[in-house]
Design a protein around this nucleic acid. Structure first.
Lengths: 230, 230
DNA sequence: CGCCTTCGGTGATGATGTCACCGACAGGCG
DNA sequence: CGCCTGTCGGTGACATCATCACCGAAGGCG
């Protein structure tokens, strides 16, 4: 249940972004003046192919799943944008006046700072710190994509699933997701997830419930991931 | 046979890049003054993980293959940079002061304009046209990567191989590459390439020779690609 | 309770990746 | 020429995964 958050003071959100903390006061002022705080409920399509991108989103709360809809109608999970990160790949399309290739969907209620194209362009021009922030974000996303390709091609499904479960569980013990959802994230079929999870359960690493996976033997999962991740 | 090219006059190479033609004279002057024309023989490693990137390359002649070396030691073809394009993804690492994730290898003798980091940063700051050039290049590469992921996950090997053969052949009729090379480009095993090519030969689409594939039935290959590409 | 939707389980089959091995070919050299 | 050697390509066996078809179980709802 999304308790209505108090509207943040005009500038304090900037400090949630590591790379922006060192912005000079003048630039900070322009950034906060030009940005609009927007809220979106879970499930909303944040951006999609065919919509001209006209602003950069800096995520303050929530997560956005970025996926590609293939020509054949199926979906591939690409990466997840967390609070404190930006949908930076949209900026490339934004500044190049080209369409997105990917779709962004709010997985949770989302609060973000939206920076219009003109402001973004101006900040890139004027602030070396802002430039570095932008390119560092690019660098990280591109590295993620390379890693994703590597995983898809060379990693076995069981390793990828184990890694994803650990990631999704975070500190907690339970992952709430259907087998179909997990399959979509990893670009594979639901049946494969079912069978692999059954194998994990047989080894005592997880317990299965409808719509949920409880991680009761993290050590085993972690060992599996490490054994292949080196 | 790479006939020694005459050294181009100081500025005319800029016009080979579509997005740069509209640069104002002043920016052009700074760009050509700051850039160095470099030549590299085929086979040279243009950039690699672990080497700090300190310049952007704009390719004037030749092609560069960009691949990732996976943690397990195998290689994945990511994309190819042609003459008239730039190794733009290196700029993200360059400006973020991070290491490359990928490796670039000259497939042919290469001539390029090398732009040092400081000059690049300055041009991004000062010229809207240059900014748009850079971000458009990003946009294209990122779209390519998305398409690559899509292909890897959902396209059958025969379709991907047919498409790659047509692409590599260009106007010509013969593709000079070993089955192992083709396998590396598509992220699959040599045996799969051999079997698929044998099937193509059986259908009369190609003729096989040691280290070469002759496309004698393009229509069939094209039909295969179209049938799945829609 | 009975119906319906969603979720998960299972077997069969085809495509692809992986491994092991072998024969064919090209180039260098005695 | 004949041999050696490294590269290239062909092949069978097997493991993994994608896909299809189908079904039963769990939970929501009237």
């Amino acid at each position: 249940m999304p308790a209505p958050l108090p509207a943040p003071a005009a500038t304090d959100w900037i400090d949630r972004f590591e790379g922006l903390a060192r912005l000079p006061a003048e630039i900070r002022a322009d950034l906060t003046a030009g940005a609009e705080i927007v809220d979106m409920p879970a499930g909303v399509t944040v951006f999609a192919p065919g919509q001209a991108a006209d602003r950069l989103l800096l995520l303050l709360e929530g997560t956005v799943r970025v996926q590609q809809t293939s020509e054949t109608g199926r979906e591939i999970f690409l990466y997840r944008v967390h609070a404190g990160e930006s949908c930076v790949l949209t900026t490339a399309c934004m500044l190049a006046f080209e369409d997105h290739a990917a779709t962004g969907i709010a997985e949770t209620p989302v609060r973000a700072a939206a920076i219009p194209r003109a402001i973004f362009d101006d900040l890139v021009a004027r602030s070396p710190v802002f430039r570095q922030f932008v390119f560092a974000a690019y660098s990280r996303r591109i590295t993620d994509l390379f890693t994703l390709i590597d995983d898809i091609v060379f990693q076995k499904m069981d390793v990828r699933l184990a890694a994803r479960l650990l990631e999704l569980a975070g500190e907690g013990e339970e992952v709430r997701a259907t087998h179909a959802t997990l399959g979509a994230e990893l670009g594979t079929a639901r049946e494969v997830i079912s069978r692999t999870l059954a194998e994990f359960q047989r080894r005592g690493w997880v317990e299965l419930g409808r719509g949920a996976v409880r991680l009761v033997g993290r050590a085993g999962l972690e060992r599996l991931v490490r054994s292949a991740g080196a």
